[in-house]
């Protein structure tokens, strides 16, 4: 479970987060929608321990992530629109590198399984710089889950993907969701965001302004709410 309380982040005079309170249950899939500049990426960066909050707390399964960063990081996998992969290493070499950083046991076997799962087994020894955007994103998923994290954080993972690659990503995320992983995703993609998540929130100007179960919303009804809230925030 992730508990976020009164989370505040300032960059000089700019307040990116202004008192966020969130509770995400174990195994829940939460999607955070919001316009550019709403502070969604800042929220995920704090949840992933990349940056520290100005004030407030994040507790994941009883661990305060600001005081026990290294333990917390083992439980977190991050997927962003950036791959965090080295172009001049092969897919397998990249996974070996990150797997060793996380002390993954039986690593060769785990890599074989993951590459097969994301449909890249035939490209295992190819340099990552030769991959298409969709292939890169699939390898990013393999990199993010190589250490079997309990929490997966996704920052705009649909950015730059064509429809086929986006569908593939949705299916992979659905599969991860069935494995009881706690997932938090930020996206602008209302259709995919609604389809795969359990709960949705809208974040505007560093605050959560709307929260509902995904099942209660259709794409049309949520679009109406979203544009209404974004309009209010301006």
């Amino acid at each position: 479970m992730i508990e976020v309380s009164r989370l505040w982040k300032s960059y000089g005079p700019v307040d990116a987060l202004r008192g966020i309170d969130l509770k995400i249950e174990k195994g829940e899939f939460l999607t955070v929608f919001g316009p550019n500049g709403a502070g969604k990426s800042t929220l995920l960066k704090i949840l992933s321990t990349i940056i520290r909050p100005t004030s407030g707390k994040v507790i994941t399964d009883g661990i305060d992530i600001s005081s026990a960063n290294e333990d917390a990081r083992r439980r977190i996998g991050v997927i962003s629109h950036k791959a965090f992969l080295y172009g001049n290493l092969s897919a397998k070499e990249n996974l070996l590198f990150f797997g060793r950083l996380y002390d993954v046991p039986d690593l060769e076997k785990r890599i074989e399984e993951l590459l097969a799962e994301v449909g890249l087994a035939h490209r295992a020894n190819d340099m990552v710089r030769t991959f298409s955007r969709g292939m890169l994103q699939r390898l990013t998923i393999a990199r993010a889950i190589i250490h079997n994290p309990a929490i997966i954080l996704l920052d705009e993972p649909y950015t730059g993907l064509d429809q086929h690659a986006a569908r593939m990503l949705t299916n992979l995320l659905k599969k991860l969701h069935t494995e009881d992983k706690t997932i938090v995703m930020t996206t602008h993609d209302i259709t995919n965001g609604l389809e795969i998540s359990d709960r949705i929130v809208i974040q505007i100007l560093g605050k959560i302004v709307f929260e509902d179960r995904s099942a209660n919303q259709t794409v049309e009804s949520f679009e109406r709410v979203y544009f209404e809230k974004v309009g209010e925030g301006k």
Binding site: S48, T49, I50, E70, D71, R73, R74, I76, V78, S80, K82, A83, F84, L85, Y86, G87, N88, F98, L101, Y102, D103, R143
Partner: peptide
């Protein structure tokens, strides 16, 4: 090379 594809963030996320 750490800046391309934001690999630095990948390193910062690791338990090191």
């Amino acid at each position: 090379l750490e800046k391309e594809e934001d690999c630095m963030q990948g390193l910062m996320l690791s338990p090191l």
